[in-house]
């Protein structure tokens, strides 16, 4: 790994050799990370013929045709976008809310079998989707949830909720119970202590949880494919629709890829600082 060391400087400084090595590694990682994304972005502005040119082409007359095609004519992407926003947003919000309640309860309960309970919660996230999708489809069908946004929200909860509970539980567990106790001595109810003392302290955790849940559900394909209908298709479904019998329109596909990816990146980057502190507080004490 980091090889040479000259003497015993504090870690942040290290030797010149190792500093250069660090930079080289970071730059390499950046290239490895960004080239595919950059290429996708670039290709989405290319005229159709150049997207699949045998020799990669960097100089071309940029065009918005691919995007224009996505938002016009028979396949207007607008509704897909709206469905994705609503379904993923609501699911992440609900997961964070329910996860905060349950995570707190789990952290504070003294019930026997608490460890079993918490393992059961996380194990529900491990279910292979292809196996459980048929029963879920039939249950949803009965409840009239097929082709509805609430149905998608509920389905996304099946993987978001365990994750949210698990992550937030870790936050609450590392806050000393003395906090609520002193609040209760001051006359608060248990709920008020939770609401006004504990919750504000875990804001980074809540944001982190919300964002990760948002990303997971925004990106879901398997559930959306089965449970959505004509009215509730989401963006990843739209992407797969470009794989047609007579070929893939790579220009449009890279455009839709960009449309799917950019919002999540923006959200993710907007809260990056919170992500690190969030995970620092939670994961370090991870349960």
């Amino acid at each position: 790994m980091t090889a040479s060391t000259t003497g015993a400087g504090p870690l942040e400084h290290g030797g010149r050799g190792s500093r250069i090595l660090v930079r080289v590694l970071v730059v390499t990682a950046l290239i490895w990370t960004l080239v595919p994304l950059g290429w996708m972005l670039l290709s989405s502005f290319k005229p159709t013929a150049e997207v699949t040119a045998a020799t990669p082409d960097v100089w071309f007359g940029p065009t918005l045709d691919n995007y224009r095609n996505l938002f016009s004519g028979g396949n207007n992407l607008g509704p897909y976008l709206r469905n994705s926003v609503v379904a993923a947003g609501c699911s992440a919000l609900l997961a964070t809310a329910l996860g905060a309640l349950a995570g707190y309860g789990l952290a504070r309960t003294k019930a026997r079998g608490k460890h079993h309970l918490s393992f059961w919660i996380i194990s529900t996230r491990m279910a292979p989707i292809a196996a459980v999708v048929l029963p879920i489809f039939l249950i949803f069908r009965t409840l009239g949830l097929i082709d509805t946004l609430p149905g998608l929200v509920l389905a996304y909860l099946s993987f978001n909720l365990p994750f949210a509970i698990w992550l937030l539980n870790a936050f609450f567990a590392q806050l000393p119970p003395a906090l609520e106790e002193s609040a209760q001595v001051a006359g608060c109810t248990s709920w008020q202590a939770f609401r006004h003392v504990i919750l504000p302290l875990t804001r980074p955790g809540l944001v982190t949880t919300f964002v990760l849940c948002l990303v997971f559900s925004w990106n879901d394909y398997a559930f959306a494919l089965v449970l959505s209908g004509p009215r509730t298709q989401t963006l990843p479904i739209a992407a797969s629709q470009l794989v047609t019998q007579t070929g893939i329109d790579w220009g449009q596909l890279t455009a839709i890829g960009t449309v799917v990816v950019v919002p999540m990146m923006l959200v993710g980057l907007a809260v990056r600082r919170w992500l690190v502190t969030g995970l620092t507080m939670g994961a370090v004490t991870g349960e």
């Binding site: 048929l134 489809f137 097929i146 082709d147 089965v226 004509p230 298709q233 797969s240 629709q241």
Partner: peptide
């Protein structure tokens, strides 16, 4: 007319589930 277009394997999947529900969409 509402048209839902999918690639073939996704189509086969949706049709099978639709039939399994006993009352077609």
């Amino acid at each position: 007319v509402n048209i839902v277009t999918l690639e073939l394997s996704a189509l086969a999947q949706k049709v099978a589930l639709d039939l399994a529900s006993g009352n077609g969409e």
